[in-house]
Design a protein around this nucleic acid. Structure first.
Lengths: 216, 216
DNA sequence: GCCAATCACATCGTATACAATATAGACGTT
DNA sequence: AACGTCTATATTGTATACGATGTGATTGGC
């Protein structure tokens, strides 16, 4: 007998609002009134407030005192700052991971590379969220292997951005191929236990992603 | 007519609980029942839940589903991870700050150095929270000058730890003097707009603090 | 005597009513 | 006409009642 934990209102609210933001249903800066969300989701204000607080510290909304939540806006300066931090943090994670990663995880990462390359070969412009998910998994593996849980949490906090900004549909084909090559080479560097190699590659990989995004 | 904004229950709860944790009134891992906090603070559960969520993502308590909040415990591995991240993040902030800091801020930082050295000369073992506050201000100046607001938020998140761990009363006198010299030299490096110098110093400064804490 | 099922209690999660606050518009004054 | 003030309304903040869930003790069976 499978126990169905029966989704909780607070989670439902969280996911609904989060999806709405990530899919661009609300404009940046839009005022998310609690009452509107009540009508939309069909639960009471309490779990909605809870969800909004969570989204606030994830950076997807901004809560001001007595004035509610607004969808965060993502201007260029903000994005530059985030990529700057990603270079720093994920580069560091790669360096740490080289010392600690085991072969099982390396195999999984190789498999992820296979899958992503398949999609690239097939679709040319991989707009599918599936591709983004695989990419997330790849990066998450490195963060987990770093052994520093807080490091992973930090990166997760800053990599929450609207889907428009995370989709790879507008990548130039050669940018995508380079990105795939980076993934492969990072796995190789990690296999060699060469932390500095892995770190340099990861930094380059993220900077390349930043450039591809900015140039689109 | 001075308007007194009349402290809000949510803030009162937040500050009370936070102070209690930082001052060690509760053991690490202690179960913070909402009802107990209601009796203690004298407000309803709603703002208390609010405060607990805030403290959760600051890392001071850990909330588990349907089982409430527990005071976070700070073992050695956790502290090592945090200092590792501080070296990374604050070092980076120092490097960025060198390019952007203005003379007004440099003057303020010099003044903070003066004040802290006064205390060190006077007290020998500066247990006062005043010293910790000055130190915080010093580090905050560099984070602000870095120009990356998220960087500052991240550091703030991980530097929330019980006062026991932030007090300088157990520093050896020579460790403290070295620390003061670091502060001075960082200001000098920033004045020279030498980011790498400032970064190296900041990294050394934080590692030294880690060693002084671990060796106490 | 030991184990398991069950029940009672403590605690968290949610809903709703009420209070405090901010915002926008109308109105009067200058 | 511009400005400030005042009031009506919308929105958030708080309190409290109720429901769901987890936990520990008690009891019944073996």
């Amino acid at each position: 007998m499978t126990k169905t934990p029966r989704e909780r209102p607070a989670d439902k609210a969280y996911e609904t609002i989060r999806d709405g933001i990530l899919k661009g249903h609300w404009q940046g800066g839009a005022h998310l009134t609690e009452q509107k969300l009540v009508d939309l989701i069909g639960i009471s204000r309490t779990p909605i407030r809870d969800a909004l607080r969570r989204l606030d510290n994830e950076g997807l909304v901004t809560i001001s005192r007595n004035s509610g939540a607004r969808v965060a806006r993502w201007d260029k300066a903000e994005i530059d700052q985030i990529f700057d931090l990603r270079v720093l943090l994920e580069g560091h994670a790669a360096a740490l991971a080289a010392d600690k990663i085991d072969s099982a995880r390396l195999d999984k990462m190789t498999h992820l590379c296979d899958q992503m390359e398949d999609i690239v070969k097939h679709e040319k412009y991989p707009s599918s969220p599936h591709f983004a998910k695989l990419n997330d998994q790849y990066h998450t593996h490195i963060l987990s292997a770093s052994g520093n849980a807080r490091l992973g949490l930090m990166v997760r906090q800053i990599t929450n951005m609207p889907l428009v900004l995370r989709t790879y549909a507008h990548y130039a084909p050669d940018s995508l191929e380079r990105s795939m090559q980076h993934h492969r080479e990072i796995v190789t560097a990690l296999g060699f236990r060469d932390g500095l190699w892995a770190q340099s590659l990861m930094q380059a990989h993220i900077r390349a992603g930043h450039a591809a995004l900015a140039g689109s």
